[in-house]
Amino acid sequence: MGREIGAGRASPSMIRRSASLLRRWVAGGGKRSLHSHLRWAGFFFVLPALIHLVIFKFYPMLQALRLSFFRYDLMSPPVFTGLENYKLLWENPLFHQSFWVSVKYMFGVSIPEWFFALGLALLLNRRMPGRAVIRLAYFFPIAMSQIVVAMVWKFMYHPFGLVNTILETFGVGRINWLSMEESALPALIAIGIWRGIPLFGVIYLAGLQAIPKEYHEAAIIDGAGVFQRFFYVTVPLLLPTIMFVMVLSLLSAVKVFLNPLVMTEGGPNGTTRVLPYFIYETGFAFFRMGEAAAASMVLFVFLFGLTLIQLRLLRRGGVE
């Protein structure tokens, strides 16, 4: 491992060759002039970010792919085992469980978020006294740290915590939310939703405000009611934002890791062991790096497929 990066010395001819390759890649057959200079300038502005992503995203991704065919425990040298890791995953009931926990968490969090956040944005887009203060109150939680959220909610879910206290006034008995198999995942999902609404609300609000007033006025003149305006004006014009929120909410829900770790430790009985947690555990608790990498690949393929489907829908929706 390790020979790919930083090791070995590049020969002058190699540098020259790659320079000419790069030139062709960026500027095409462009002449040396201001405008080819501008093409270069544009490329150089993008280059630092690109290099960073190659080193810290694409290269690791390729490494993960490679590693997923090896047995590796960080200590002894990696051993090629072919598809062994994938086979192990396939036969591991914990992996299956993890996968479904992740899927449940992902959709359980993001689907309600789409609707609640849109509702919030519609609410905040109305004229009302004290709107600025109310907006501030809703957006403030965006700034809150995950760890603070995790700690507060662990306390909230305590058998004698605020959640149970409030429920008790409605006649519901005290529940030990985080240590029961039926309630642990829903409890975490509720936090996810609660946490995601403000940010997606801001994004929706931005989208709503980008819709020119004239469309609504024209619709009013055409005799459209509140609901008709919502479905025939707001929703179609908001479609790019809606798609964006969908993609972003799914991608951020699938990353959840901290809450299961500090609130439930993946339990009880693995009912909250999401895939990132599984990957972490396999790699850094059991030092089965190859298997962890294979799990990463599965998760990536899943995400990739999901994003493709969404993009397809996006295009069918007439948005690019």
């Binding site: 810290f56 290269y59 699938v254 990353k255 990132p276």
Partner: peptide, 25 residues
Amino acid sequence: RLILSTLMLPLEIVLVPTFLVVREL
């Protein structure tokens, strides 16, 4: 598109290999 595609590669997914890269460095 390449840059945007890394939205699908959060640290949580490339955790193991990113760690290995950082270790190599």
